[in-house]
Design a protein around this nucleic acid. Structure first.
Length: 215
DNA sequence: GTCCCGATTCCCT
DNA sequence: GGGAATCGGGACC
């Protein structure tokens, strides 16, 4: 028998879970739990799919480079990139090797290790500001470039995604992705309905399109 | 080598 | 609702 665990029902996702189209995997990642071996854990409530060579908004759109090499590897690994000179963002690589597809983890509801997360985030005033946004999520979980390529299935670098038995929402909210310039027409962002920890806008309210877009 | 700008966040108005 | 912060990647010369 295995030793007793405070969360006996948490089970790791198999490689096969990730080895599919990111637009299928993304909504299925909702309500799963991102878990670190230092006890930090949070429920994933918002994600975006990036579809590789057919997706001008994807880092992998123009092919493999040193930065995005992890995206072109097998599914079930973490692709971590640095942006805006200060933020790290984490993706679950999906699909098959060479496809360059994945799912950006955009927002999380803190579950365990919340004091560690608050410290990592330099003590935000409100709990919902701990991990409601991709940069915030990575900072709260202590994810930086050393986690790029980490295998979520084997947990070799102490990070994984697990299920506690909670199914994905039956009717997730789908809408346009946030913070991109190309392919904004694709509704490849999903979040849990009515959830306080979703980024950018209030739960259930799609982000307002600004600037040059059609109305 | 130079230049532009980003899968963002925070703080101000 | 808007602009600054801040720096590495990638396109181009």
């Amino acid at each position: 028998m295995s030793p007793p665990s405070p969360h006996p029902r948490r089970t790791r996702l198999p490689r096969a879970f990730y080895s599919r189209d990111p637009r299928v995997v993304a909504p299925e990642l909702l309500n799963k739990i991102l878990l670190r071996d230092d006890g930090r854990a949070g429920r994933i409530v918002e994600v975006e799919a990036y579809a590789g060579a057919e997706d001008p908004a994807a880092h992998s759109y123009r092919g493999k480079t040193a930065r995005n090499a992890t995206m072109f590897g097998p599914g079930g690994h973490l692709y971590v990139y640095f942006t805006y000179g200060m933020h790290w963002c984490a993706n679950a690589v999906c699909g098959r090797p060479g496809e360059g597809v994945g799912v950006l983890l955009r927002a999380m509801e803190p579950l365990d290790g919340i004091e560690l997360m608050r410290e990592a985030r330099r003590f935000p005033a409100r709990t919902r500001d701990i991990a409601s946004g991709p940069g915030r999520l990575a900072q709260a979980m202590g994810i930086d470039r050393t986690f790029d390529g980490a295998d979520l299935v084997t947990m070799e670098r102490g990070i994984t995604i697990v299920s506690d038995g909670t199914p994905p929402p039956e009717h997730p909210i789908a809408g346009p992705r946030i913070g991109i310039r190309h392919a904004v027409e694709h509704p490849w962002r999903w979040h849990v309905p009515e959830h306080a920890h979703v980024s950018k806008t209030r739960a259930g309210v799609p982000p307002a399109r600004k600037g040059r877009g059609k109305t």
